Structures are given as C-alpha cells and as structure tokens.
Amino acid sequence: MTEQHDVGRRMSGDLDRDRLSALWQCRFPKGPPIAHELRAAYSDRWVRFHSLPGSKRYPETEDECAVVLHRYNTVLDELFEGTDVHVVTVAWSWEPDGPELPPRRREVHPEGARWTTLAHEDGPDPELHSYTHLYADRRLWRPGTVDAILREVADDVLSGVIISDSGLTRIHHPYDGGADVIATSPEARDRLRESHRDWLPRNPSGL
C-alpha cells in the first residue's frame, strides 16, 4: 500500500467534530448542513448538473449507471483532485437514539462517525418529532472512492449526502437525478457550468 493511501485511511477514522461544526458555521452561516437547502441559500454560487442524457432521472441499466457515476466523478474530480474531502451521509430516526433509516447508510459508509444530530421537535405531538443524524469521515479524494454511496443516491436510497473539501470551501451534493454544486465564487461556478453545458438542466431556472 502506498503512503498516500495509508494517510487517507488514517484520516477516515479521525473526525474532529467540533472543528467541522465551527468550520460549517463559518463557511455556511445561513443554516445547518441540510444539503437540499444550500442551493437557495447560496444561489449565486450554485449550479445543477443532471446525471443522464435527456434529464432522465433514474438509471435502468448498467450502462446508464456507468454514465451516472462518470458524471458524478468527473465533476467531483474537477472540484477535489489532489485534496482531502469530507464525506457526509444522513440517516433519520423517530427517537434521538432509536433505530435509524435507511439501514444501507451504515453498510455503504462504515467509516462515517456521528458528526451531529438535528432535532425536529417543533410540532406539539412528540410522536411526530424526528431526528436527522449526520455521519462524516475525512479521506483522500480519488475517483471511485465514493461510488458505493453514489449508487445508493442514484437509486434514491440515500439522500442528503454532502462531499466537500477539508476546508468546506465548496460543496458537491449528489441527489437522485443529478448533483448540486456550491462553488467558491460565482466565477468558479460559471467556469464549471461552461465545462459541462450538455449536462445542464433544460429548465431556465436551472432545476
């Protein structure tokens, strides 16, 4: 095993939760790490790419799955080549420490350590309260390193996934059908968008 890969493995088991929370508050002060809310909060740096030609949402064959993974990994590599990344996956439960869904999260992200839990307790009925659990690890980015997670995202099994550089300066949020990117600046967003014009949504709103 190369030294570079060994460093990546050591990092994945060493999550500094307090630093990550403080860094998120500094970089993204408009709200918690809820992936689908980022595009509205940081719309000046946001761009969306679709995963399949014709804006088809779900892959139905292995060839289509290969296209989805290629598009995900191409953009991820442009964002994070040669850097460490934080990989964040999400589960939820009806009780703070109750059984978590989906169970596949633990299977495809065993390196993830509990980062934080977001409580949704606004309603008057305690039986309707829920809890969102975020798990994170830090690893060296390599194409294919998160393919197991991306496959579950593409099949709408996992949601809320966030991939970011170690300094949380840019965000990749894959979802079932595409990916939202929050770039470091409007200019960086525009360069990325121009690089992959064929993958942009047809909708004028960019969705």
Rank of each mutant, 00 (worst) to 15 (best):
A41G: 05
Q25M: 06
P99M: 01
P186N: 03
R17T: 13
I149P: 10
D156H: 07
L192A: 12
V90R: 04
V67F: 11
M1C: 02
V90E: 01
L118K: 06
E127R: 13
V153I: 05
T116I: 12
R45C: 14
C26E: 14
R193S: 15
T169C: 08
L69I: 11
L79V: 02
R202W: 09
D6I: 11
R197S: 13
W46P: 00
W94D: 13
P99N: 04
F49L: 03
R138Y: 03
H36E: 08
E152Y: 02
L38C: 08
Y58S: 02
S93V: 01
S43M: 00
R10H: 12
R170N: 05
D6T: 06
E78K: 09
D165P: 09
R189E: 08
D63I: 09
P110V: 02
Y175H: 14
Y131T: 03
P102I: 01
S164I: 02
H120Y: 11
D137E: 11
L128D: 13
D63T: 14
Y135L: 04
T89Y: 09
W199S: 12
H120T: 06
W199V: 10
P124N: 05
R57C: 00
D156I: 00
L52G: 05
L69S: 10
R19K: 11
L118W: 05
R105M: 13
W115C: 08
R19W: 06
A148P: 06
R9M: 15
H5Q: 12
L192V: 14
T117C: 03
L200T: 14
H50L: 06
G82P: 13
S12I: 01
R193C: 15
P174R: 13
H133D: 08
S51W: 09
W92Y: 12
R48E: 10
T117G: 03
T89M: 12
P59V: 00
P110S: 05
P126Y: 03
D77I: 12
W92I: 01
G177V: 14
A188H: 05
L76M: 07
V146S: 06
R17Q: 08
